[in-house]
Amino acid sequence: MKHQNVFLLLGNKPCYSLLGSVLLVCFLFMTSFVYAQEQKRITVEFENESLAEVLKKLEKLSSYKILFTYDQVQKYSVTASLKNVSILEALKKVLEGKPFVYSDITDDKYISVKYQKLDEKIVDVKTISGYVVDSKYEPLPGVTVIIKGTTVGVATNSEGKFELSVP
C-alpha cells in the first residue's frame, strides 16, 4: 500500500479557503481574549481597611501592578462598595477625598498612586475624557495626553480613550 499525502480538496484544488477560515476564527478568538482581559471588571467591598491593603487587593483582582509608597498610604483607610467597575474607576473611588492621584495604565501593566498635597483652595475636581483618533477617525492607543504647563497626564487605552481628573 502506497503512502499518500492527505489534502482537503475542493474539486481538484486544495481547500485554502477552509484553512484561511480556521486561521481567521483563531485570530478572532485570541483578539476577544485580549479584549476581555482589558475589560476585566471588579466587584468588591472594603470596610474600614487600610489603603495599603485595599491597593494590594485591587492589584490581585486586576491584571495590573499598582505602584505606591507604603509609608504615604498607611495612615489612610477605605470604606467602599465597588460593583462591576474598571480598575481606574475603582482607584478613583478608593482615593476619593484623599491626597493621592493615580496615573493611567503604563505599558499595559502598571498604575502608580502618588501623594499629592491637596490645596485648600481647590474644592472641585473635574474629569476630562475623550478619544484620540487619526485623520481617518481610527483610535490611537498609547498616546500621551498632558495638561499644558503641568505634569498631569494619562495615556490613551487600546480604544484611544482617555480620562483625566483635574482640579
Rank of each mutant, 00 (worst) to 15 (best):
L19S: 08
S21F: 05
L55H: 05
S63F: 03
K40W: 00
F68L: 08
E59R: 10
F33P: 01
S32M: 14
E49K: 11
L8W: 14
F33E: 11
E59K: 10
V34C: 03
N12W: 06
G11S: 03
S62I: 06
V22P: 00
L24V: 00
E38I: 01
K56C: 02
F7A: 08
H3L: 13
C26G: 04
P14N: 14
V73Y: 13
V22K: 02
Y64G: 06
R41T: 02
M30F: 15
Q37M: 10
I42L: 13
G11K: 13
K40Q: 03
S63E: 02
E47C: 01
Y16I: 04
S62G: 14
K57V: 06
L61R: 15
L51T: 04
E45C: 00
K13C: 05
K40L: 05
V54M: 00
K2Y: 00
V22Y: 01
V25S: 14
L51K: 03
Y16E: 07
Y35P: 00
L58M: 12
V73G: 04
K60A: 15
Y35C: 02
N48T: 01
E49V: 07
Y16M: 02
E59Q: 15
S32R: 07
K65W: 06
V25N: 10
E49L: 07
F29T: 12
E45P: 01
K56T: 05
F33T: 13
V73L: 12
A36P: 04
E38P: 00
V54Q: 00
Q4L: 14
L51I: 02
Y64Q: 03
S32I: 06
L9I: 15
F33C: 05
G11T: 11
L8C: 12
C26Q: 13
L61Q: 15
Q72Y: 11
F7N: 11
S63N: 08
K2F: 02
E38Q: 02
Y64E: 04
K57I: 10
F46S: 09
L23V: 03
L8V: 12
I66G: 08
I42S: 06
Q37H: 03
V34H: 05
E53T: 00
L58D: 10
Q37L: 13
F68W: 13
K60L: 11
S62W: 10
L23C: 12
E53F: 02
Y64F: 10
I42H: 13
E59F: 10
L61I: 04
F68M: 14
F68D: 07
T31R: 08
G20C: 05
I42R: 07
L19P: 01
E59L: 04
L55A: 07
Q4H: 15
F27I: 12
L67N: 14
Q4M: 15
S21N: 04
E53Y: 00
E53G: 00
V22E: 04
